[in-house]
Amino acid sequence: MTVMEKNTKDKIFEEELMPQIDALYNFAYHLTYNEEDANDLVQEAYLKAYRFIASYEVGTNAKAWLFKILKNAFINNYRKKTKQPTRVDYEEVVNYHNEEDDTNYSSYSDMREEIFQGMMGDEVTNAVNSLDVSFRTVLLLCDVEGFKYEEISKILDVPIGTVRSRLHRARNMLKEHLKEYAESKGFTDKRG
């Protein structure tokens, strides 16, 4: 690679990719609900993006491209981590941590932190977090990040019909979770 090529890569990286970092971090945080995991995920996504920057077409949708890289990194990490069930009873977590040697149970510490953060977070964040990751992802991409169905379909590698049905179910589940809270704040949904 010549110096000029590296300069070009750096320029694209700085001007087109780095401005997306807040949105990317927000997405990563709502996928993992753990600041360290979100940091790792964003860093991994950016380093991969830099490595494969030649496949990015300048002036196209940098945000969607980065989100796709991050989503793939998340799925790979998630698969590695979830040999065990994703949800465990709190008592079970405490018992595991009372064992003399907990080196084999490192993934449980994330879960305990997730449970703690869930208790401390606000109602909406809790409700979104309670959605299964496949529903949470489409909701975040559409309602928080403002991606269109077609963009979400490309980011997640699923048909547009799947995006629409997941979004429909995610919103309905969220409405159920939030019904009482929303009504108490003056937002109403009387459809039942």
Partner: peptide
């Protein structure tokens, strides 16, 4: 003619610097 609910973390400067 006949008179829809749409629900924020910021990245740390350390992470930005680390990536750069």
């Amino acid at each position: 003619k006949n008179p829809e609910f749409r629900i924020r973390k910021k990245v740390s400067p350390n992470l930005v610097q680390s990536i750069k």
